[in-house]
Amino acid sequence: MNKLFFIPLLFPLFTSCQEDTEATIPDQPINSEIMYTMPEESAPHEGTWLQWPHQYQYGIDYRNDLDGTWVAMTQSLIGSEKVHIVAYDVTEKERIISLLETAGVSLSNIEFKIYKTDDVWVRDNGPIYVRDKNNQLVIQDWGFNGWGKKAAFSNCNTIPTQIATDQKNTVIDLNSVMINEGGAIEIDGNGTLLATKSAILNSNRNPGMTQAQAEAIFKKNLGTTNFIWLVGKAGREITDMHIDGFARFGNTNTIVTMNESDLLYWEVPQTDINILYNSKDKNDKSYTFLKLPLSQNDVVTTYGKKLGYKGSYVNYYIGNTVVLVPNYNDSNDAVANKLIQSLYPTRKVIGIDVRNLYANGGMIHCVTQQQPR
């Protein structure tokens, strides 16, 4: 069975990526002294970034089908952190404000930025906040090329630098160093990075880059010294099998994933499953595992489209006081929500309907990006 999960329905319309972006790979591994460290997702946030859906790339139906998910995410987050909303233009900003006011969402903890975007996947193209040696937050701008030039990306690739300019923050330009989407990597906050080679060491992102070179770059810029590499599956979907669809660090000692049969359904190679289940942290200590189910049934959108595949709950997002979990109007929503709640007893799990988003590309983690406090 060939199951292609969360490939955008509009993928055939991607005709031009608008620019030729590739990382220039150094001949030798770069100086890998740790320069920056990335706080884990569960560390305190100043806020969360969202790129709001618009009509200018894929049409009004695309935008309208997704609005409800963005309203729900915003409403769930504003109680404990700022929500930074990227609107395509002033017209879109006014439309978004009307949507939020109609839903009774207060605007007091929302900041709007007007930047042109190609799409909504801020996890992959947005700013990566790290701390320098003086513990100051700076923004890293990694290269983004539309998941290997499969989609338009020229607007989204400029977002981190635009945010840094507006925030008067230091920007670390890594565009020529590595193409790296945020959803392609997971960190445990204690020096370990988990990723698939298919989404990073791929000729459509970083041609010629070796594992050693990638590790040196990550060590210097994210502060990771221990690496868990899965092979992944190039061409599995538009991301070439991002790690955050099926395996996440729930905290410094827990990996959130699925059971073996569900991972195989997800087309994770058996060798990768073995590596994942035997993962150890930088101190050679085995991780604890929380295994979530897939949705019980194949997902059907709110407008009645049968997607023909099940949904993952692993792609959730950790806020300051809430955890936003993808839900599918499925009997396993409650099961997954309860399991995730057990991992975060001080946070409230909120299920967010992602059925329409899932038809177009991903789930909650894919469309959120944290700004640490």
Rank of each mutant, 00 (worst) to 15 (best):
K3Q: 12
L4Y: 12
L4G: 05
F5E: 03
I7A: 15
P8D: 05
P8Y: 00
F11G: 06
F14D: 15
T15W: 11
Q18D: 15
D20A: 05
D20Y: 11
I25P: 02
Q28A: 14
M35E: 10
M35V: 08
T37W: 11
M38D: 12
S42R: 13
P44C: 04
P44N: 08
T48W: 04
L50T: 04
Q51G: 09
W52T: 06
P53E: 08
Y56S: 06
Q57C: 11
Y58H: 10
G59S: 09
I60L: 11
R63M: 15
N64A: 07
L66T: 03
L66K: 02
D67E: 12
A72P: 01
Q75V: 00
S76V: 06
I78V: 11
E81S: 02
H84L: 13
T91Q: 15
E92T: 14
A103K: 11
Y115W: 10
Y115E: 05
Y115T: 02
Y115P: 03
D124S: 08
I128F: 13
R131L: 14
R131I: 07
Q136F: 06
V138I: 08
W142G: 00
W147N: 05
G148Q: 03
K149Q: 13
I159K: 01
A164G: 06
N169E: 14
T170K: 15
L174F: 12
I179M: 13
N180V: 03
G182Y: 04
G183D: 03
I185N: 11
I185C: 07
I185R: 02
G189N: 04
T192R: 04
L193V: 12
T196K: 10
N202P: 01
N204D: 14
N206Q: 02
M209R: 01
Q211M: 14
Q213F: 02
A216Y: 03
F218D: 00
G223E: 02
F227M: 06
E237H: 09
D240S: 11
M241W: 12
I243S: 05
F246G: 02
F246Y: 11
A247Q: 00
F249H: 01
G250K: 03
T252V: 07
V256H: 06
M258I: 10
M258D: 06
D262P: 09
D262A: 11
P269D: 00
P269N: 07
N274L: 12
I275T: 13
S279Q: 08
S279N: 00
K280N: 03
D281H: 13
D284T: 11
L290I: 02
L290Q: 09
S295E: 05
Q296F: 02
T302D: 13
G308Q: 03
G311L: 03
V314I: 08
N320E: 05
V325L: 09
P326T: 06
Y328E: 01
D330G: 05
N332P: 07
D333N: 10
Q341L: 01
S342L: 09
G351V: 07
I352T: 07
A359E: 09
V367M: 04
V367G: 07
Q371A: 10
P372Q: 02
